[in-house]
Amino acid sequence: MRLKVWGARGSVPAPGPEMNRYGGNTSCVEITLASGEHIILDAGTGIRTLGLDLTSSPHVNILLTHLHLDHIQGLMFFPPCFRADADITIWGPASPEASLEDRVARYISAPLSPVEVRELPCDVSFRDTPPSEWQLGSATIRCEAINHRGPTLGFRITDGDTTLCYIPDHEPALGTVLADNEPEWISGYDLARDADLLIHDCQYADDEYPLHVGWGHSGMTDSLTFASRVGAQRLLLFHHDPLHADGFLDDLHAAARRRWAELGGDSASVEMAREGAVLDVEPVAAPAGISGA
């Protein structure tokens, strides 16, 4: 699997010269499967530039973790939406309150939008994520509800013998101590266990987290502890706070590497998500490079 980060920012786009290296676009990750097919994770503002890159007759699957604006804002500016030859399937969490299409249409409708979903020239369909595994191209996808604010999913994508897990908005430490809680009681544990790459929320530095408990995001040490507990081989820290400029994220990265080493991991396997970065995800041979107690 190959992965490209098109937006790594959380909450709200954060453009500006001080954000140039990590980028200001919100959550969007493109996965290229071994079979050549593409899966898009979230439709934050990063999906706009991804769409410019797509060539003729695109058929795309977009997996939405949830419908917070930073994960759907780019949809209305996704160039394939305005192409009659494009075929787009949008997957997202089911709700007893309204269909996925109706919930997304609250954004893509007047007065927030100049177009309505039904006016889009592309062939677009909305699908609730199924409760059991399903297949997209050569990949097996599984999702699970995880702890954030409002109904939110994480995704586990397995292609051949490689597994990636995407949990961009997650506060597994809320109301518990991650380091010693039993695995069955940790939000997202089963979804992320043994992933070759875990893409995980790291919105806050440790000293910022106490002021944001319950906001649905993780502090750096909690992200690392979660990754360590699930036995993730490689960790991509994601969903950067819009206040975190490049220099701050460099420092946070250095601190995360030190912390990961303290947890028994290889410091080189912790990376900071950066807009434009391309990563090849490969299976890591057992035994795990880092594993929990």
Binding site: G231, A288, G292
Partner: peptide
Amino acid sequence: MERMAAQKPLE
């Protein structure tokens, strides 16, 4: 890797 019972539902 840790041994675990079935993951509990989020709720």
